[in-house]
Design a binder for these strands. Structure first.
Lengths: 155, 155
DNA sequence: CGTATATTGACATTATCATGTCAAATATGG
DNA sequence: CCATATTTGACATGATAATGTCAATATACG
């Protein structure tokens, strides 16, 4: 049959989800190895990235929401980052307890070093794919994300 | 410029990876909620699926390799599944210690119940995507997986 | 057969994640 | 202003995952 049936599409999506689980874990492991020379892990790197990406410094709970992650785990990792002097807290004029998280110079250097390790490799990796396929994959996964976020919120 | 530059593709891939992290976590959480009525979790469900998919019963270590997961964690989960009488061990003619993992009738029923919960939802979810986009996403992620598996093995 | 190597399950340890609770601080609605 | 609900960081606890080690077993190779 030319037109894909409902079931065929559902099976394809199932296969995609299983592939995503694998690719996700492999990517995290790859990231761990990649940035370990600068003392980071995938998790710490992601959190540094979240801090860099926001326009203005935010408290931990906001960063956690941005990341779609657990507030408590983000807190723990950011506390670790503070011990390593990669981030520091600065007073929040709007909230006495919820301090703002900012990168220290060391934190900025570390993040840049991670990016410098990452950039050439992701460029090489991207060579293997067409821009169209990457775009299609992005469409599917971000739509999936939106859908599941809605489901998680409502129901 | 019409032709996507190296950097543009690399940025698109980076964005895709970040989306994948989110979609992966949301999918696992969704799966946890989905199959919790039958006493499963995403992790237990995946392992049951691996047991079902293989033609012939396999020992724990082989299943772990199939899943690309930790041998020890799979062992722990399968031990839990045995306590719940969803799987049982049967003697392996080729190996005295490495027993073969098989589903019990209760395990089969539970797995089928999970599938019955899952099927209509994944069909509904698949409606939102074109078969072409799903295929493209599958191509990208499985190529990514292959690439990273190679890197992990060599490097 | 005999030896070296690899595999496997059991066990222990540590790290990471998930979840709930609490008090302080803030925001909201009268 | 007051009462209530929400947010936030701190803390505790249990679940899950990652990593290393060990003895038993199996495999490969002379």
């Amino acid at each position: 049959m030319a037109r894909p049936t409902k079931k065929a599409k559902a099976e394809a999506l199932t296969e995609l989800l299983l592939t995503m689980f694998r690719a996700n874990n492999l990517t995290l492991a790859w990231g761990d190895r990649l940035v370990s020379p600068v003392g980071l892990t995938s998790a710490r790197w992601q959190i540094l990235g979240a801090i860099v990406l926001v326009d203005r410094p935010q408290p931990v709970a906001w960063l956690a929401r941005d990341l779609g992650a657990n507030r408590q785990n983000v807190q723990r990792i950011i506390n670790d980052l503070k011990k390593d002097e990669l981030v520091s807290f600065e007073p929040n004029p709007h909230h006495k307890r919820a301090q703002l998280v900012v990168l220290t110079p060391k934190g900025q250097q570390t993040y840049e070093a991670a990016i410098n390790l990452y950039s050439p490799l992701v460029e090489a990796l991207a060579e293997d794919f067409s821009a169209e396929d990457i775009g299609a994959a992005q469409r599917v996964l971000s739509a999936l994300r939106t859908k599941l976020e809605t489901l998680a919120a409502d129901g």
